[in-house]
Amino acid sequence: MPDADDKKAILYNLILDAKRADAVALLDDAIEVDGFDGAISGLLDPVLRTIGERWSLDSISLAQAYVAGKVAEDMLVRLDSSTRSTPPAAHRGIAVLGNAEDDYHALGRRMVATFLRLGGWKVHDLGNDVLSKAFIDVALEEGASVIGVSAMMLTNARNILKIREELDARCLSGRIALAVGGAVFALRPGLVAEVGGDGTALSAVDAPALFDRLAAQKLLTASPMPR
């Protein structure tokens, strides 16, 4: 009988070998034993955190990250159709996600959306190449507490500064937090402050904790009413 570490190693290798169905079957078995929350927090989360960290360091392939994201999506479907007694949807908060202006690298953003939903966030995913005004307009319409922006390359990441400038201009800084992420942030840690980000996460798995923290900080911050 494999122990918890063995199961993590098996799941990790199944994902890296692109054996999505086998990975999901292993997680289904874990759900039977540990329940949904136990399988996610005890098995899927740690494995995907490792994969996310390795992806940010260029040491796993795009395909392996893609399969990891699909396995997480499969678990989200399980969650939606499960009889979980305490459905988490919208309990944590509302977030708006998108890729920065001119950025079309969707995979990381989709993984973040999946993990936020698994973590109990209601997510409005605006897709690729989103302008600063659209991020903020939707955040206001939906009552979002966090805007999450993904960018892969430095040039596109610098477009995030436009969102910060617009938040400032509309007196929304402090009311709506700005989370930033993508490969370039892992390699240039100073970039978060340069583009006006309130925080970043090393991998998609860590995004819910970041969004939770930013939403909590927002509650402690007084700010003027928006224009």
Partner: peptide, 18 residues
């Protein structure tokens, strides 16, 4: 090899999504 899909069928699934 470079993107690591191992087969074109898997790559096609990814590409058709994006």
């Amino acid at each position: 090899r470079e993107l690591g899909f191992l087969s074109i069928d898997r790559a096609a699934e990814f590409l058709r999504e994006s």
